[in-house]
Write a protein that binds this DNA or RNA. Structure first.
Lengths: 249, 249
DNA sequence: ATTGGCCCAATGGTCCAACCAATTTAGGAA
DNA sequence: TTCCTAAATTGGTTGGACCATTGGGCCAAT
C-alpha cells in the first residue's frame, strides 16, 4: 500500500518553465497589452531552450488569448499578464444553427447590460474621451460604407467592456462574438444587418458619459434587442429561401 | 480612400487544418473521453504534415483541456469533441483575491438574473415541480445543519439554469462558481456564509412558478446581492486579521 | 511631395532528422 | 506462473534549414 501522504511531486515541463520565465520578464519589464515580445529566436537563446520549445509555450499562451502572433512582424501581448493567473478554458458544444445564435444573444443581453451599467459607474474622464473616440470612428465608418462596420463596432463595445473594470466580460462576450461571426460571413440574406443598432451606440455612450447606470443598462438592452430582431428576420428569410430551393447551410 | 466593400481575407493555418481533420476523425470514429488518439507520427504521415505541426495542434487542444498527453503512452481524449465547438478561455488575475471573486459575482449577477427571467418564461409544469423538489431538499438540508449546504444549493440553481432553455448559462455560471469556490474553502472568516441568501431561494422559486420574469429577475438579483454582501464582509474581516498578525493568504 | 515598385532583413510558420525520457510490451529466467 | 530485463513504442526536445509574410528603406517616375 502506498503511503497516502505522499503526493506526486511537481515536475515542471520545459515549456512550463518558459512560460514562468516569460511572466517574470513581462512583469519586470512592465509590458502592457499591445507591446511586442522578444522574438522566438531571442527567447530561445536567452532561456537556453530550443526554439521549438519556445514556440510550444507561446502556442499555449496564444490559445489562452494572452498573446497574438503576426508572421513577419512579431509576437504581441494581448492581455495583461500577472503572476498567479488562474486559467479556466471553457469549451462548449454549440451548433451553427439559429438556436445557438439566439443563445449567444441571450448571454450577451445579460452581460452587456451589466457591463454597461458597471462602466457607467466606474469610467474615468479619460475613459469617456476614449470611448467617444471609438464611437466617432464607428459612426464615420458607418457613413462611409452606408452600413455597420464589424471592426469599428467591436472596438466600441470592447472599450465599454474594458472600462467596466472586469476583464471577464470581454473574455466571455468575445467568445459569443466569435460564434456570431462564424455565421456573419453569410449575412443571412439580411442586407442591412446591424443597421438598426446604429443610433443606440450613441445613446449608450451618452448614458455612460453621464455616469447613469440605469440608462446605460437600458440602452444596452435596446441595442441587443435590435440585433435579435435582425437575427429573427434573417431566420425568416432563410426559411423562405430554403423552402424555395432547398439550400442547406 | 479604401474601398469599404473590401474586407480582410482569412487564411487557414496549417494546425487549424490539422485540428479540423482531427475533429472529423474523432467524430467519425466515435471516440469518447478516455480513448486513445493515433500517435503523433501516424497523424503526421496520414495528414501529410510534419510532426512539428501535429504537435503544435495537439498542444492547443491540450491547453483547452480537450486532450491529455502521456509520454511513452500516447495522447488521450479528455473531453467530448464535436464540430463547431466554442472555445472560451477565461483568465483571472490571481484568482484568489477579493477583486477577482467580485468579478465572478458580477458575471453571475448578469447571467443569473437573465437565466431566471428566461426560466420564468419557459418553464413547463414538470419543470416547476422539479425545481420545487430541489428547493425543498435544499431547505431541509439548511435546517438540518443550520446553514447553507453548497451541494443542495447548487442543485437548485442548476435546475433553474436548465429550465432557461439555454445550456450556455449553466456552463458559464458553473465556471464562475468553480472559480469562486476555489477560495470558498476558507470562507474568509465569515461563519454563516450564504446564510442571508436562504429566503430568496423560495421567493425566486415562487416568481418562476408564477411565470413572472420581472419578479424572477428581481429575486435573482437580491440573492446575488446577499452573496456580495457576505463577500464584502469577508474581505473586511480578512483585512482586520491581516492588520493584526500579518497573515498572508 | 507623393506614389508605386523594388529589394532586403527580420520574424513567425513549417519541415526534417535525430536523439532523449517515460511507458508499454514481449520474452526469457526462476 | 511470476518476476525481471531488454526492446519497441511514444511523447518531449534539439538543431538546423527553408518558406511566407511583414515592414522599412531606397529610388525612380509622376
Amino acid at each position: 500500500m502506498i503511503n497516502p501522504i505522499l503526493s506526486p511531486v511537481h515536475t515542471y515541463s520545459r515549456d512550463d518553465a518558459v512560460l514562468q520565465a516569460l511572466v517574470e520578464f513581462v512583469t519586470d519589464e512592465g509590458l502592457i497589452p499591445g507591446d511586442r515580445l522578444p522574438t522566438e529566436r531571442v527567447l530561445a537563446v536567452h532561456l537556453k531552450v530550443s526554439r521549438t520549445t519556445v514556440r510550444e509555450a507561446l502556442t499555449r499562451w496564444q490559445e489562452l488569448g494572452l498573446v497574438e502572433r503576426r508572421q513577419g512582424s512579431g509576437t504581441y501581448l494581448k492581455a495583461a499578464v500577472t503572476r498567479n493567473m488562474l486559467h479556466m478554458p471553457l469549451t462548449l458544444a454549440s451548433g451553427n444553427d439559429f438556436k445557438s445564435l439566439m443563445h449567444t444573444l441571450e448571454i450577451r443581453r445579460g452581460l452587456e447590460a451589466e457591463a454597461a451599467a458597471l462602466s457607467a459607474e466606474r469610467v474615468s474622464n479619460e475613459d469617456i474621451a476614449m470611448i467617444e473616440q471609438k464611437l466617432i470612428r464607428m459612426e464615420e465608418a458607418f457613413h462611409e460604407r452606408h452600413g455597420m462596420s464589424a471592426d469599428e463596432d467591436w472596438d466600441f463595445h470592447l472599450a465599454v467592456f474594458r472600462t467596466s473594470g472586469n476583464p471577464l466580460f470581454e473574455q466571455i462576450i468575445a467568445a459569443m462574438y466569435e460564434m456570431f461571426h462564424r455565421f456573419w460571413e453569410h449575412p443571412l440574406g439580411v442586407r442591412d444587418f446591424g443597421h438598426a443598432s446604429f443610433p443606440y451606440h450613441r445613446t449608450l455612450y451618452n448614458a455612460i458619459a453621464a455616469r447613469d447606470p440605469i440608462a446605460a443598462r437600458a440602452e444596452a438592452l435596446k441595442l441587443i434587442a435590435t440585433v435579435e430582431d435582425d437575427l429573427k428576420r434573417g431566420a425568416a428569410n432563410l426559411k423562405k429561401q430554403t423552402q424555395k430551393n432547398r439550400v442547406q447551410i
